[in-house]
């Protein structure tokens, strides 16, 4: 009898310990839908990108980031919505001539397609750790050069409730969004004889941004 009771207690303790890990909610005071605006006047919210090609490796950043991430902290995967935009004009690689070519009509054609967008369609394999950090796979539509591609991006969302420390960065609760992935230039309809030699077809990118629910 005692042995069974001990087993039952142990099982209960294991389930209790595992419950927060299985929970799909942030352990934060905020209630209801929260919308985090990724607008950042200081330009610290950035997407970085890199191309590894036989002739040349290129890396750069884009700081013209915008968009929102919304969710109910009590049910993040079921309620999350995200629309993120990056201004092509804000992309730079440290070489003015190359930047002009990159934004030109033979490459990303900033005049015709001024933004690169990502729209989340679902969040899968979401796991929340320590009550405030969510890791999962963001499935969505990545539109580059006006051509939509379905992508799956490993994503990490870190919820930081407002505190004295976070006030130094921005008002309200903060959400740190990190994601990375790859996108094909050929699939995006970019045609250039330099693709494959000077610029790789597959561009790797990382997204690093902080949003606030107090910024409208």
């Amino acid at each position: 009898m005692r042995t069974r009771l001990a087993f039952a207690l142990a099982a209960l303790m294991i389930v209790a310990a595992a419950a927060p890990a299985l929970a799909q909610k942030f352990d934060v005071p905020a209630k209801g839908m929260q919308t985090f605006n990724l607008k950042d006047e200081r330009g610290r919210n950035q997407a970085s990108f890199s191309s590894k090609a036989p002739i040349e490796d290129i890396s750069g950043t884009a700081s013209g980031l915008g968009g929102t991430v919304s969710f109910d902290p009590a049910n993040v995967p079921g309620t999350i919505k995200a629309d993120i935009t990056v201004e092509v004009a804000s992309m730079k690689t440290g070489i003015d001539m190359r930047d002009d070519h990159m934004r030109g009509d033979k490459w990303l054609d900033a005049a015709k397609f001024p933004t690169i967008t990502f729209t989340l369609t679902k969040l899968k394999d979401a796991k929340i750790q320590k009550g405030t950090e969510l890791r999962g796979i963001a499935v969505g539509t990545f539109t580059l050069h006006g051509v939509p591609q379905t992508v799956q991006l490993p994503v990490t969302l870190t919820y930081m409730p407002a505190s004295e420390k976070t006030k130094a960065r921005a008002a309200g609760d903060l959400l740190v969004v990190r994601a990375k992935g790859k996108v094909s230039l050929t699939k995006a309809g970019v045609r250039s004889e330099l693709l494959g030699s000077k610029v790789s077809d597959e561009i790797e990118f990382e997204f690093n941004a902080v949003g606030s629910n107090a910024v409208k």
Binding site: N45, K92, G94, D96, M97, R169
Partner: peptide
Amino acid sequence: HLLTKQQLPVEMTDDLLGTSYIVW
């Protein structure tokens, strides 16, 4: 270098937020 560089990336980190960003 093949092309003349006008700017170099310098990686900065924000310890509070655990993020990094590039300053040119």
